[in-house]
Simulated assay, not measured.
Amino acid sequence: MFSFLDTTYKRKSAALTSVIMSLLLALIFFVGMTYLDPPEEYGIAVNFGTSDVGIGDVQPNEPLKSTSEEKLQEEQEEVKETVEPEVAEKASETLTEDVATQNNEEAIAIKKKQDAKNKADEITKNAKLEKERIERVKLAAIAKQKAEEEAKRKKLDALIGGINNSDGTATGGEGNDSKAGDKGNINGDPNANGYYGNGGGGGNGDYNLGNRKPVSRPKPNYICTEEGLVVVSIEVDVNGRVIKATAGVKGSTNTAQCLLSQAKEAALNTKWSADATAPSKQIGTIKYRFSLSQ
């Protein structure tokens, strides 16, 4: 019949193609594209109106009566009067909040600064009061020492017939100055070489060696600008000679080298009473008090 349909496969393909084409023609005929009559217009719809401005929800079907410029101005002013107070009120509230926040932060900063200043002033004041208190204590101690020295001097004057009122009979002099006189302290030791302060010595409790007593008690030379108590540990033989001295042992309040050397030298030159029954090395102590105020 048809030479190109010479195989079973070709015939089946032709039949299937015919069926598909028939279905497509039927669909185009019954479900084809439609069009509107008149055709649909495209674009943006514009509202009916007769002026460039307007207000309200009612749509007039005819042109409105012309509105005077004065009425239009009044309406604009009413709207302006209504809007401006609201804007001004909101702006005022915002400004008030900002100013309040700023003032609060500044107030906190000022308060912290003032608190720090008050604390510093209080510390300075307390330090000044403490310094004044220490000065008063020092002055009181100096005044007491001077009063005691004056009392000793008056007592000594009374014993020797009033040295302050006598013309004196001794000749010579001693000191390291260029002027005539006998330099030193009225309560000092004639054998001492120092001219300032109090070398200590003398009195109960300064010398301690069991029941043995010091025969000679040379005072240390006071050539330092230091003061305080120096305790010297000593070893004494049966003949009363100091064979060893260690200055600055427990109980000392100042271990300046110049004080220790002078205290040790004075201790080594101290002579004690002999005691044949004493140990070959009897241990004792000597206390020297150095004071710049005497």
Rank of each mutant, 00 (worst) to 15 (best):
E62D: 08
T50F: 15
T96E: 12
L64Q: 05
T101K: 12
T96V: 03
D98N: 08
Q76A: 14
K90I: 11
G54V: 07
V79T: 09
Q102I: 08
E86V: 15
A88W: 00
E77Q: 15
A100W: 01
V79A: 14
E97M: 02
K90Y: 07
A100P: 00
N47K: 12
L64Y: 01
E81N: 15
F48M: 05
V79R: 06
P60N: 09
Q59C: 02
S92R: 13
E74N: 13
E81A: 15
L95Q: 11
T82E: 03
E89F: 10
S68Q: 04
Q73K: 15
E74C: 00
K65L: 05
P63L: 02
E70N: 09
S66K: 03
E69P: 04
D98Q: 13
T67G: 01
V79K: 05
T94A: 13
G56T: 07
E69D: 13
E69S: 09
L95I: 13
V58N: 04
A88M: 10
L72P: 00
S92H: 06
E62R: 10
I55K: 08
D57G: 05
L95D: 07
K71D: 15
D57E: 11
V87E: 14
P60F: 14
V87G: 02
D52V: 09
K65W: 00
T82P: 00
V99G: 00
L64N: 10
T82W: 00
E93F: 03
E74K: 13
